[in-house]
Write a protein that binds this DNA or RNA. Structure first.
Length: 570
RNA sequence: UGGGGAGUCGCCAAGUGGUAAGGCAGCGGCCUUUGGAGCCGCCAUUCGCAGGUUCGAAUCCUGCCUCCCCAGCCA
């Protein structure tokens, strides 16, 4: 399409894309010709942890908006604090953004701009807008005042430009110890916006930086680095979360004092999800204290954890697109996320048979050595997925929960004397339940109807239930990891006095099942592959899986109407 | 008690003076060789509260209430 009006004459705002207030602003800016209609965003993570589902929302916004309006979106690491940042995180973040399906235009680091930022600081000193302060951290806090009382000016605020220049150069040259001095902007100690009370621009930190090594021992603060970084790159719409609202005036102040490209910041609501923590600090603690196995533990809300769990990037993107963007501080229910997961998995995951808690079934009237190959559909949602053959024989495993010796009214799976369909197999009738000395049911004796091969009923009779099974002689043993929410409370931060969020950790968040029986085709299941275990849920082959000993992570259960009924009748 | 942001169905969220979209969840029903999927239907006389302006207000005005953010040499 040409860059002129499109053929239908419909303005850009009439696309079917669901809008939001930031998208509306961009559309308006394009309409009025702001920046000649150029749109540029950026995703600016600090490499101090792994990306999580909250970042996914920001990523979808930043990259999505740029793509929609033919603009650019850079990936820029906000690496101004070497005490927290590591290359492991830099690498993981790039992998996760790419996996989510986005391509950055430029790959930059705030540290790329350290020299420019330094030069600008010198300029501000020369303009009398910044000064070197010898106050200690504690003193700075005292001088800052409170929410209701104005602050006091630092006694070093009136140093001469020459002295400031000299001191700042010496700070840079490493002549002073950590914490002994700062460079501060000279703004207004009585401002109701605390960010304006002579904010610190530079601190001394003799510390190895992951990219610049030891070439710097002074590092810029967020407020002094972010807006200028945006400006240097030509970012037109700098999108961030609501808590930076208070920083916007300062973001603008530096840009105005420096007279550089006027990037503009817009704030949207941060994502919160029930039963989930989205704070890098707290996620780091979970990792460091061993509450999870790592940043990619399938219980973590990190992109890498969700990927390992079996989430698809499309499900995450659909979720982000659906929840919308506003300025309301809300909490999205995890069921909302799970809906999009199931929706995508249902369309794409191939069906297989897997018995998690096996119960042996012997079909008494089935020939001892006969093995029949039954045709099974790979994905009823996708005709192109085709079919596969699965072996059927005299001895099978079915799910323990699919048999009840004394079934409640609405239970219509297997029970003594009752007939059910074995999916793609035969109709079988339970004749007897065999128990061990302790009374536990260890085997079912059943008979089958030879006329019902494939599960068909030539006489047209109906059975209430179809259950899944695996041929005992052909089954492959597997390990299956079942996950529940990591926390027992909707709000993991809701704790008694003296406790922290770890008090709400769910002791049942991981349950490992061994000796599960899966169909033979899964013997060499490839890590990362997602399946639907029919009637049980969606599962993803774990990276620790090896040929012959497959390991599966339960991504999510199927919706379970029976479980709901059972809860009610209890 | 300073400043900033926000309050529309259980949750998310449209709406910007003309008489409350949509999604999730929930509840019925249909269909079904996954109690899955799919399909159909129900689900805010009311928009934090109280006044006011107007023929008409979730949308405008006034006052009040509640929640979130800011006192890191974190981002």
């Amino acid at each position: 399409m040409s860059s002129q009006e499109n053929t239908t004459g419909s303005p850009v705002e009439e696309t079917s894309e669901r809008s939001n207030f930031i998208r509306d602003i961009i559309i308006e800016d394009i309409r009025t010709g702001r920046h000649d209609g150029r749109v540029q965003t950026r995703f600016p993570p600090e490499p101090n942890g792994y990306l999580h589902i909250g970042h996914a929302k920001a990523i979808c916004l930043d990259f999505g908006l740029a793509a929609e309006f033919g603009g650019k979106c850079n990936l820029r690491f906000d690496d101004t604090n070497p005490s927290k940042e590591e290359t492991e995180y830099v690498d993981a973040i790039q992998e996760d953004v790419a996996w989510l399906g986005f391509k950055w235009d430029g790959l930059f680091y705030a540290s790329d701009y350290f020299q420019q930022l330094y030069d600008w600081a010198v300029q501000l000193i020369k303009d009398g807008k910044a000064f070197v302060c010898d106050l200690t951290a504690d003193e700075i806090r005292e001088y800052r005042g409170t929410l209701t009382e104005p602050g006091k000016e630092s006694p070093y605020r009136s140093r001469s430009i020459e002295e400031n220049l000299d001191l700042f150069a010496r700070m840079k040259n490493g002549e002073f110890p950590d914490g002994s001095r700062t460079l501060r902007a000279k703004i207004d100690m009585s401002s109701p916006n605390l960010n304006f009370r002579d904010p610190v621009m530079y601190r001394i930190l003799h510390m190895e930086h992951h990219r610049t090594g030891d070439s710097w021992c002074i590092y810029p603060m967020y407020d002094y680095a972010h807006g200028q970084s945006d400006s240097i790159e030509g970012v037109t719409h700098s999108i961030c979360t609501l808590e930076f609202d208070n920083n916007r005036p300062l973001y603008n102040w530096f840009i105005e004092q420096l007279g550089i490209f006027p990037s503009q910041q817009y704030e949207f609501d941060r994502l919160s999800v029930t039963y989930t923590l989205l704070s890098k600090r707290k996620l780091l603690k979970l990792v460091q204290d061993g509450h999870v196995t790592g940043w990619d533990d399938p219980r973590m809300p990190t992109i890498s954890g969700m990927r390992r769990r079996g989430y698809t990037s499309e499900a995450i993107r659909n979720f982000c697109a659906n929840i919308g963007v506003s300025k309301t501080n809300g909490v999205t229910q995890i069921a909302h996320l799970e809906y999009f997961l199931r929706e995508d998995l249902n369309r794409h995951a191939w069906r297989v048979s897997a018995v998690l808690n096996p119960l042996r079934v012997v079909i008494e009237n089935y020939p001892d050595d006969l093995v029949e190959e039954m045709e099974a559909i790979n994905n009823p949602e996708d005709a192109g997925a085709g079919t596969r053959m699965v072996p059927f024989s005299k001895i099978l495993y079915i799910e323990q929960e699919d048999f009840r010796e004394d079934p409640p009214k609405q239970f219509y799976r297997l029970a003594p004397g009752r007939e059910v369909r074995l999916r793609y197999g035969y109709l079988i009738t339970c004749r007897e339940a065999i128990k061990d000395e302790t009374g536990r049911i260890v085997e079912l004796r059943c008979t089958y109807d030879p006329e019902t091969r494939g599960g068909n009923t030539p006489d047209g009779r109906k059975v209430k239930s179809t259950i899944h099974w695996v041929s005992a002689a052909h089954a492959v043993d597997a390990e299956v990891r079942l996950y529940e929410t990591l926390f027992t409370k909707e709000d993991p931060n809701e704790v008694e006095d003296g406790q922290d969020f770890t008090a709400n950790l769910n002791p049942d968040s991981l349950k490992v099942l061994s000796g599960c029986k899966v169909e033979p085709g899964l013997r060499e299941a490839v890590p990362g592959t997602r399946y639907q275990f029919e009637r049980m849920g969606y599962f993803c082959v774990d990276r620790e899986s090896v040929p012959g000993q497959p390991v599966f992570n339960r991504t999510i259960t199927l919706k379970d109407t029976w479980a709901k009924i059972e809860q009610k009748i209890r």
